[in-house]
Amino acid sequence: MVGGPPPGPAELEARDACAWFGDHLVLEGVNLRMRAGEVTALIGPSGCGKSTFLRLLNRMHELVPGSALAGEILLDGEDIYAPGRRAQEVRMRIGMVFQKPNPFPAMTIRENVLSGLKLARIRCDDKERLVEESLERAGLWREVKDRLDRPGGALSGGQQQRLCIARSLAVHPNVLLMDEPCSALDPTSTRRIEDTIAELRGQVTVVIVTHNMQQAHRVSDHTAFFLAEENQPGQVIEQGPTAKIFSTPDDPRTLDYVQGRFG
């Protein structure tokens, strides 16, 4: 493949990241290191800035009218918001999977997987191999290998979500962001998505927003707990190895949240 991102997982780091919608400060002073090849879970109640932070990480926040940001987001030490840095290049290296599966319904399964290459004008000499590899990595190949020319929109919800993961993986990103990827799925589909995340560990850096504490505990290496106190912007209250965050966190608010006392 020619023209794609450099291969392998990359480290993401937020330094004093802040975000506004108009005059409203929604996220303040986030410092968070997301290690290469690991899975980082972002947890916290609704409205505390987790999804906004996720969108800062691949320059989607700037697409919202009236939005603003401050601080730095570093990809392997380089600021993704540096002057002259193209947003399209950043989004190739830092892919996104959304809460609701969004395959292109009029495209076939094969076309969906390859659509990112076409948009980014990446040349691939063996598209069939890439389709198989991407679907295999997303845990979908065995289920669809005999119907690649059928519409992507005809798949089940869980299969559509894994197709979206395959589409993101086809351009070989260094980082994959996931915004509550299982919230609309049944338990069986959720398990398959979690299995996919486990398979991707070490191949790509994963950052996942989830409200499912058991899921965060199962899939992640590192966890960051976000919280917005009343009339205050969202902040990271605590972060650390997932096992510690869920067993012996330093802040009592973290323990209250992971044990379901609020949120």
Rank of each mutant, 00 (worst) to 15 (best):
D146P: 01
L148I: 02
D149L: 03
D149R: 02
D149M: 03
G152W: 06
A154L: 09
L155S: 01
G157V: 12
G157F: 11
G158K: 10
G158T: 14
Q159S: 02
Q159T: 04
Q160E: 14
R162M: 08
R162E: 08
L163G: 09
C164Y: 03
A166H: 06
R167V: 00
R167G: 02
R167Y: 01
R167C: 01
A170G: 03
V171W: 03
V171D: 06
N174T: 02
L177G: 03
L177V: 07
M178Y: 10
D179F: 10
D179Q: 08
D179H: 07
E180S: 12
P181R: 13
P181Y: 12
C182Q: 12
C182K: 12
C182V: 15
S183Q: 09
A184V: 15
A184E: 14
L185D: 15
L185E: 14
L185K: 14
P187D: 04
T190E: 13
R191V: 05
R191E: 14
R192H: 14
R192Y: 07
E194L: 12
E194K: 03
T196E: 06
T196Q: 02
I197W: 05
I197D: 00
A198P: 01
E199Y: 08
L200Y: 04
Q203I: 08
V204A: 11
V204N: 08
T205K: 05
T205H: 07
V207P: 00
V207F: 00
I208K: 00
I208Y: 01
V209L: 08
T210W: 13
T210F: 12
H211N: 10
